[in-house]
Simulated scan of single mutants.
Amino acid sequence: MVTSKLAEPTLLSDQVYFTLREAVVNGELPAGYRLRVRDIAEQVGTSVLPVREAIRRLEEAGLAERVPHKGAVVKGLTLAELIHVYDVRRLLEIEAAQLGAQRITPDDCEKMQAEYDLMRAAIDEGRVVAYLDHDEAMLTILYAAAANPVLLQTIRTLWIHCRAYKIVGANGTLDTAVDDSLWRYQRDLVAAASKNDVAAAAAVNDASLVDATDRIKALLAAQTTAL
């Protein structure tokens, strides 16, 4: 169910788009969910025109797709897309980690540590969306230190695009009590940043994204087998 509380942007179509996008990336609207224009318009309290525009923008962002006899639905998860998206993330985020580790300040390292602590608390409490939010906030601090806003914005767009994959990976890993892969790499990344260790930061990011790809790939395969 789409939340009825609209976000802050001024234009009505922007409000509807950001509301729907948040519901998709946070898992409130799962893969395959039918985006019925009139139903959504009634839920958010608008006419159908802003909803149609918002759904079109979701399709452009790769978060929705057209399915015969169903119309627009929240995009499903595929192994091919997972590999493609995470390959691009590795290219960009290794570079961002290197540049950020070189330039980051002690004050920003403290902010990274604070986000890491909040992330660990979210893991302990099983709050997957909060875990992902704090993980991305921690990485944003490091990547922003690279002083390349285009690089940072491109990475954040990819995060939105692959949030559903991240949710699958985090949920599946939380079920394994002995698995430390949700926090071990972030701990090591904070340590590398604090030492301005460019090589270590790049290596940690590379290992983290390879591990995430493998874990999510296995979980998707298990889900497919179970169907």
Score class of each variant (00 low, 15 high):
residue 11 L to D: 11
residue 8 E to T: 14
residue 203 A to Q: 12
residue 220 L to F: 08
residue 154 T to H: 09
residue 225 T to P: 01
residue 173 T to H: 01
residue 178 V to Y: 10
residue 55 I to G: 00
residue 28 E to L: 13
residue 18 F to Q: 09
residue 48 V to R: 12
residue 88 V to F: 00
residue 220 L to K: 05
residue 207 A to W: 04
residue 151 L to V: 11
residue 9 P to F: 04
residue 19 T to D: 02
residue 6 L to D: 05
residue 112 M to V: 07
residue 141 I to N: 01
residue 226 A to F: 06
residue 147 A to W: 07
residue 188 D to A: 06
residue 97 A to D: 12
residue 131 Y to I: 00
residue 191 A to E: 14
residue 30 P to T: 07
residue 227 L to S: 15
residue 130 A to D: 13
residue 176 T to D: 13
residue 49 L to A: 12
residue 181 S to H: 12
residue 112 M to W: 05
residue 208 S to G: 08
residue 88 V to S: 01
residue 163 R to T: 00
residue 74 V to A: 00
residue 58 L to S: 04
residue 138 M to S: 13
residue 105 T to P: 03
residue 148 N to G: 10
residue 142 L to C: 09
residue 220 L to R: 05
residue 45 G to D: 06
residue 61 A to D: 15
residue 94 I to K: 02
residue 6 L to Y: 06
residue 149 P to D: 11
residue 76 G to K: 05
residue 183 W to Q: 03
residue 4 S to F: 09
residue 211 D to N: 11
residue 196 N to S: 12
residue 213 T to W: 01
residue 222 A to E: 09
residue 202 A to G: 15
residue 76 G to I: 05
residue 104 I to L: 05
residue 159 W to N: 14
residue 13 S to C: 12
residue 223 Q to T: 10
residue 109 C to R: 01
residue 39 D to E: 15
residue 9 P to M: 05
residue 115 E to C: 12
residue 183 W to P: 00
residue 5 K to V: 15
residue 138 M to K: 10
residue 23 A to F: 03
residue 191 A to R: 14
residue 140 T to Q: 15
residue 177 A to Q: 10
residue 191 A to N: 13
residue 160 I to R: 11
residue 57 R to W: 07
residue 137 A to C: 01
residue 188 D to K: 07
residue 216 I to D: 03
residue 222 A to S: 10
residue 8 E to I: 14
residue 91 L to Y: 14
residue 78 T to D: 01
residue 150 V to Y: 08
residue 60 E to F: 08
residue 197 D to F: 01
residue 173 T to E: 07
residue 184 R to S: 12
residue 25 V to W: 00
residue 14 D to H: 09
residue 75 K to C: 06
residue 136 E to R: 03
residue 24 V to H: 02
residue 58 L to I: 09
residue 162 C to G: 12
residue 43 Q to D: 13
